[in-house]
Design a protein around this nucleic acid. Structure first.
Lengths: 174, 174
DNA sequence: CCATTTTATATTGATATCAATCTTTTTAGT
DNA sequence: ACTAAAAAGATTGATATCAATATAAAATGG
């Protein structure tokens, strides 16, 4: 009755998964790049995520939260949480939308703009160094491929949930 | 004295950063892929990260924590934290290394192996579907490029900190 | 115009992530 | 062997991430 290892996965399969899993590779690369930019931006007082978020708020018109979350491909609740420390520091203001009192409009404060402006040259240097270290052409190609992947699942969790449960189901026809 | 907007970053710069930042693209893609696999693996009771971690423990010999953290490109403290829920569920065992009493050896339990075995077909389907949706060739190329990026910064935070502060500084010559 | 549905966001709870720091054990230098 | 340095992990504290759920306001259908 030696059937106890009927659920054993061969080591070769483990190696296959490790080597081929795009999700794992993406998480690894994302962590590595996050650390690279976090380290570089630390003197400016920003993390990579805060830099991206604040940069996305540098628009002529203060955007509502939804579109920003979609742009960053993050959950709306993640955005709510990410805004908290930036509000506390007085770098981002969250105001009620007079046109739609459910909504909020996000904007950089003067100080926020100043912080972002100080961070920008660091980003430029870091990104240039990164580009240089990559095999020629990799950078643009990688960017393109990453965009394809992000866009493939271009639904944010809440959006998908609503679609699945609601009358908006006609959109599913795609 | 209208100098208040001397720190304004032009909107065109914002668009440039948004479109070119590899770090942002990587975070977006990582989030999108994480959601894709989290959703698929949910019936198996695993997240994408737990799947990758447990799969990396499916080896002939139980590995110590350091190498596993390096493999996953994550901080050692992140690994410690990630193991907690898996230990609670009885899927992973963390035992003292008899050869080095500082260290721990990580292993899947029988139940852990069973859970992983049930998750494997889901991973296969999901990954196959993903591959299919990507333009042909993208998958392998993207995997390769991601690996290059992860490997570039192939130091885990603690490793780097120790190197920077300690006598191991001779390694810096690379 | 009122009831229902949809939309925009917030809250809670769980896990993930890393910096800073600490403890324990091993290794190296003398 | 003894001491100092290094290595392996653990703990704490802050932020990030998402699912599930809740709230409030706007849009929609009769």
């Amino acid at each position: 009755m030696v059937m106890s290892n009927s659920v054993e996965i061969p080591f070769s399969t483990t190696l296959l998964v490790r080597d081929t899993c795009l999700c794992l590779h993406a998480q690894r690369a994302a962590r590595a790049l996050a650390r690279l930019f976090d380290d570089a931006l630390r003197p400016a007082g920003l993390t990579n995520g805060q830099f991206s978020l604040m940069m996305s708020l540098n628009r002529p018109e203060p955007p509502p939260m939804g579109p920003v979350a979609t742009l960053l491909a993050m959950d709306q609740t993640t955005l709510t949480a990410a805004l908290k420390p930036l509000q506390r520091k007085g770098w981002v203001s969250v105001m009620e939308n007079p046109k739609d009192r459910r909504g909020r409009l996000l904007a950089l404060t003067g100080e926020g703009k100043a912080v972002l402006a100080r961070a920008l040259p660091i980003w430029k240097e870091t990104h240039a160094a990164l580009d240089q270290k990559l095999p020629d052409g990799s950078s643009a190609r990688l960017r393109q491929d990453l965009q394809t992947v992000s866009g493939m699942t271009d639904e944010t969790p809440k959006t998908a949930a609503r679609r699945a449960s609601g009358a908006t189901a006609r959109v599913m026809a795609e």
